[in-house]
């Protein structure tokens, strides 16, 4: 692709790749904006959820997923954890001059199938090609709209002492997969990104327990960062039990040798759910019934003090402070 190929060439490109690939009635109108019927939106609820995220992952293709699927699922998940049914996505693409059309088509195809799985439509988009070096290969921004169910009130501020903290499966796979793919480490592993849409799992949870207190997907910064945000927002403490936190053996092994902590590694298909203790088992059972929640575990509890802090109960029986990191993982110990 050449820079500055505006007008007709760009139109052709969009037609060729995105419109054809995504193929839905709103997009194919090729207006400068998508328009929806409000009444039909309101059938789902009376609150609109809007979120946006940019995807700059390197490499573009990695074990288990690629940037296209990630761009869909990431935004779908951000909508889903608010209790929203994700409906429409926008897709804005920045390409580095010289990017292969073939690869772009692969990404678009991947986005299409991800969107289908997630039950969303890509309704408007934009493509820019920039000078070589002005961007790294391909950046994608997606913005999503969803409608929040009327029966839920999910917020990081709602958490109360005694609540249970639940995770839907093993942690760190995405971060480890990316690291291995990017670092070209001579590491033969079967670790794949956990990239998956969570809207249906969220629906399963909310159908059985609409009074979920808080829910967030554990993406960048990993589980440790999400639970720290919870503890700060709700002014409570959270105690996780190390032995209950699921991490697959391979990820454990990689972390051991690389010296990384899986609790800080990124995930793309994991959500942390906080529910009142009386609902914990019900929610857990519901999650187990869903393919994306079959390894769900209760990993900790909310405590009244110390506030704003996450503790990790180690196998030695003492509590370690699991802090939010200011920067990268940097050795602290003297």
């Amino acid at each position: 692709l050449a820079h500055g190929s505006g007008g007709k060439a760009m139109q052709d490109l969009i037609d060729d790749i995105f419109v054809d690939t995504f193929d839905n009635p709103i997009l194919s109108q090729l207006e400068d904006q998508a328009s929806f019927n409000i009444a039909s939106l309101m059938e789902h609820g009376d609150k609109l959820a809007l979120t946006t995220d940019s995807y700059v992952v390197d490499p573009l293709f990695f074990p288990g997923s690629d940037i296209g699927e990630l761009a869909i699922n990431g935004t779908v998940n951000d909508l889903a954890v608010s209790g929203a049914k994700p409906l429409y996505l926008t897709c804005s693409v920045i390409l580095e001059e010289g990017f292969s059309v073939e690869t772009l088509r692969r990404v678009a195809t991947s986005m299409k199938s991800a969107a289908k799985k997630a039950g969303v439509q890509i309704v408007t988009g934009d493509t820019k090609v920039v000078h070589r070096g002005a961007a790294d290969k391909l950046f994608i921004n997606t913005t999503g709209i969803g409608i929040i169910r009327p029966d839920v009130c999910i917020s990081a501020n709602n958490i109360q002492p005694g609540d249970a903290v639940i995770i839907n499966g093993e942690l760190g796979n995405h971060g480890a997969a990316i690291l291995i793919a990017r670092g070209e480490l001579a590491l033969e592993t079967d670790i794949e990104s956990d990239c998956q849409p969570l809207h249906d799992l969220v629906k399963t949870i909310l159908d059985i327990c609409p009074e979920v207190r808080a829910m967030r997907d554990a993406t960048r910064g990993g589980l440790a960062t999400v639970v720290n945000e919870f503890a700060l927002s709700s002014n409570v403490g959270i105690r996780l039990k190390e032995e209950c936190i699921p991490v697959c053996e391979e990820v454990k092994g990689v972390c051991e040798i690389l010296g990384l902590d899986p609790l800080y590694l990124a995930n793309e298909g994991k959500l942390v759910v906080v529910v009142g203790s009386k609902n914990a088992e019900t929610v857990l059972a519901a999650m187990h019934s869903h393919p994306f929640g079959k390894n769900a575990r209760i990993i900790g509890e909310v405590i009244s003090s110390p506030t704003g802090v996450v503790l990790l109960k180690t196998s030695f029986g003492s509590d370690r402070i699991l802090d939010m990191l200011v920067g990268e993982q940097l050795p602290r110990i003297c």
Binding site: E256, L258, G259, Q329, P331, R332, I333
Partner: peptide, 8 residues
């Protein structure tokens, strides 16, 4: 320190 804190 290969592996960061692990080297400690």
């Amino acid at each position: 320190m290969i592996g960061g804190e692990k080297a400690i």
